[in-house]
Structures are given as structure tokens and as C-alpha cells.
Design a protein around this nucleic acid. Structure first.
Lengths: 248, 248
DNA sequence: CGGAAGATTGAGAGTTCTCAATGCCTGTGG
DNA sequence: CCACAGGCATTGAGAACTCTCAATCTTCCG
């Protein structure tokens, strides 16, 4: 299987062989993290770029009253901060959710590699998609009720994981507690629990042992208004990005 | 006064004179729009990049039930879609809110100019800030109640406009109806009205004739938990970006 | 077996929404 | 100059959704 890393980068177009070799060379410094560890904290001045290889992490922000809002989930193939090195300091934190393997890429190595047009283009692409995901997240929080909100998030993660080969059929690992889901969706864990029950009762999906199984992807998408267009997943011959628009 | 356009680009560092000339040359094709017109629609394949010169516009998405969510406000100095030309089609629309003047920049001209390191850096910077603003928007929707939510948005727009020289003291033009505010904040216009009344009653600000006057910037920021760090506004000698962290 | 973390369920409270009526302001036409 | 229509803002009242607090249950692990 193609690694999630390349599967994602290929979304912008197939990568030449020599560029792939260059990218592969970036993966020298790989570190492991236990769940619930911070990779970078708000206020840090990072000198590495981070690339998710295994596991889930998230961007988050803590408000003064101590509540937390997760603003993004990062899964294998996602860069944590492609370019954040431009800024003086992080304006949010990144923390692991499950066991993770994360590549640390030195800032100057990154600067080097970005000279290659195909690679620059792929990184631009990835950053554009990240932005589109943020917008979709805003729409989700602003205009959908709790039930649709959870369903939509699950549809999105399913589509994204499928795109990198980590969600065959309508099933995938979701290593999150209900509290973490709540922090992402702006809901209390209690309400998350009730809505998951409703999703179960309506035979839309199950969530047990950190594993989501969607009964009928098309029906769920329809019900919660999920349209994957914003993920800009395109087919490219020979790439792993065959998972697409229509259901599982 | 320095134009908002340059004021914003200078945030990433002072721009050399010859690059400024190049940028100025981009401003050849400037078009005017009445309020409530679409500049680009979801599904379009744009062949121009758009740069706001005057007025307010917004990114938005329409849900199937017809509700709208605004995901960003665009004010003078903001690029609408620096790089969107990579994608096949827009996943959201951009529409004007007030009378606007918008520069249309041909795609190949943009590609040319992006070769210049200082310019590329400034554009990266701008796009990073846009992303940070999206994250702050998510935090706002997910974790603040209606009252704080409005206050936070007003603090943000005040800081951003001040950064480009459009908000001396604690006052600025906000050419939005309460319905549009609601579409941005995930609230009904009725509730917006009630919360604005409360902001008025508590002597925090007034909003009359499309004009916000903040009574005490520091107090409002404190009350709604606004920290401008995510806007990454930095002082650069000789730039217009002197509006900074602390109040008006 | 005991303890801890997470999930579930119930009940009441609070926030925001919906529906409906009224008021205000502006531009137009008589 | 006045009357009127239309768009927007304001206010009230009841409904709906989500939250808070509290108790119970399950699972996992030492």
C-alpha cells in the first residue's frame, strides 16, 4: 500500500520519482508520542515542521476559563505546520490523541525541498485543503444542530481517511473519547453521548472500541448534508486517491 | 496614508522598492461592485485572483435548507483567493456586503509575481494569518456564548482594520445588517439585536449608522477574551502596522 | 477486589430559536 | 409636502435545544 503521506501529496497531481526520493529523505527523524502529549504549545517558537505518520493528533486552543476548542484533527499524511516557521510563535497548540509517530523535519531542510516546483505545488495544495476544512468546520459549528454536526464530522474523517487508504468500506478507527469529540464540536460530552445513541438507534452507525462503522455512507451523508467537494479529492491514475465522491 | 494593501503586506517585513512597484502594477484592472453581488460563486473556476481595495465582502456557503454561513470577512488589503487557481472549482462563494472596489489580477500575472521571494513570503504570511483567523472563528463559534461571540468579532475586525489604517481609535465602519452578523456568528438576527442591546446597555459599544464605536477597547477585550496574538500584527519601523496588541 | 476513566441516563435550568407584532427610517410617487 | 412601501431593528412570549448537576453503569487494569 502507498503510504498515507504520498497518497495525500499525490492529490495535487502525480509526483515525479526524484521528488519522491527527496521527500522520503525527510523522514529521517521520526519520534513516537503517547496519547495526550503536547507536540507544540501555544507560544512556542517551533524550529521543526511536523508530519503525521501514524495516529491522531489535534490543533487546539485553551480559553481562559479552561475550556478547550479543537480546531482540527491531524491524521497520517497531514503536515502540522508546513510553514509556521514564518511566525514568531505558535498561536495554538498541537497535542496527540492516540499513540503517534511523527516525523520532525528541520526548518532548513524544509526550505530546501520547497524549491522543487512539484513539491511546492503539493504543499500549497495541502494547505489549501486544510483551509477548506477549516471553513467547513465553521459551517458545521455555525449552522448544524448537534446531531448533524457529529454526523458531518464522521463523514469528513471517513472521507479523509479513505483518501489515504485508512478506511476501507464505511469503517475506520476513531481514537477519541466523547469528551474530545465534544471539544471539537462545541458540545458537552453528555450531549455527544445522547446524539451517538440517536445515531445508533436510527441505524446510521456504531461507535464501539474506538471504531466507527457507518451502516450506509450515502444515507448518512444525505442526512447530515455532507458534500465532499471541499476536500478536493481527485482521482489520479495509479494513486491511492481512488476513494471519492460517492459512498463507500 | 499608506494604502491598506501595502500596510497589510508589510506585516511580513518591509517590502523592497522594486517589489512594491511590481505589486502596484497589479492594480490595473479594478472593478466596482454594488452591495450584495457575488464576485465568485461556488462551482466557478476562477481565472483571476481578487484583491480587496475598498469596502467589505465575505466568503460564504449556502446549506441545502437555504441557510447561509459566512466564514470570513474580507476588508481592504485582503486577497480573496491568492492561490485558489490550483483548484478545479471554488468550494464556496464570495459576495460583496458594501460598495466595493476590487482588483482583478490575471492568473499568469500572479504566477509571475510570486517568483519574487519577498512577495512570495508576504503572500505566505497573509495566507497564514487567514488560517489563524479561521481557527479563531471556530473557537468563537464553539466555545463562546452569543454575547462574547459578537464582542469578539467586533474586537477582531477592529484590530484588523486598525492594522491597515481604517480604524483610528475605537471606531470603524461596519457595513453589515444584523442578519449578516447572524450569518457570520451562527445566530439569528433577533438574537443579535438583543445582544447588541446588552452591549449598549453595558456601555461597551454602540452600533449606529453602520458605525461601531467601542467605549473602552481594553475592557471589551478583557470581557470577551480577545487576544490579538493570532493576527500576528507586528511593528515594523516605518510601516502603518503600528496599531498593536494593547487597546486603541 | 478496588479504583479510575469513560459512557449512560434522568431531571431541571438556561440559552437561543421561532413566530408574531410593532416601530423606525428612507426613498418614491402623488 | 405628505402618504406609503420596503427593509431593517426591536420587543414579547412560548418552544426547542443544549447545558449542568448528579447518579449509575461499564470497562479496564493493577
Amino acid at each position: 500500500m502507498m503510504s498515507p503521506f504520498f497518497a495525500k501529496l499525490n492529490s495535487a497531481g502525480e509526483m515525479p520519482e526524484d521528488d519522491r526520493a527527496l521527500l522520503e529523505a525527510l523522514l529521517g527523524d521520526v519520534r513516537s508520542f503517547a496519547p495526550r502529549r503536547d507536540v507544540i504549545r501555544e507560544g512556542d517558537r517551533p524550529d521543526h515542521v511536523h508530519l503525521m505518520l501514524e495516529g491522531w493528533s489535534c490543533r487546539y486552543k485553551i480559553l481562559n476559563e479552561g475550556t478547550r476548542q479543537i480546531t482540527a484533527f491531524l491524521v497520517p499524511g497531514d503536515f502540522c505546520d508546513t510553514h509556521i516557521t514564518l511566525f514568531d510563535e505558535m498561536d495554538h497548540s498541537i497535542g496527540t490523541l492516540s499513540d503517534c509517530r511523527i516525523a520532525f523535519i528541520a526548518r532548513d531542510k524544509m526550505a530546501e525541498i520547497i524549491e522543487r516546483p512539484h513539491i511546492a505545488r503539493a504543499l500549497w495544495w495541502a494547505s489549501l485543503v486544510d483551509e477548506a476544512v477549516l471553513r467547513a468546520w465553521i459551517v458545521n459549528l455555525g449552522r448544524r444542530d448537534a446531531f448533524e454536526r457529529i454526523g458531518h464530522l464522521i463523514c469528513e474523517m471517513h472521507a479523509r481517511l479513505r483518501n489515504v487508504g485508512l478506511a476501507p468500506e464505511g469503517a475506520f478507527e476513531l481514537p477519541l473519547t466523547q469528551e474530545e469529540l465534544g471539544d471539537a464540536l462545541g458540545l458537552t460530552p453528555i450531549h455527544i453521548s445522547r446524539m451517538l445513541k440517536r445515531l445508533r438507534d436510527e441505524k446510521l452507525l456504531t461507535f464501539k472500541n474506538q471504531r466507527i462503522v457507518i451502516a450506509d455512507v450515502a444515507r448518512l451523508r444525505e442526512l447530515v448534508g455532507f458534500d465532499p467537494n471541499y476536500l478536493h479529492l481527485k482521482q489520479h491514475k495509479g494513486s491511492a486517491a481512488k476513494a471519492e465522491g460517492e459512498g463507500a
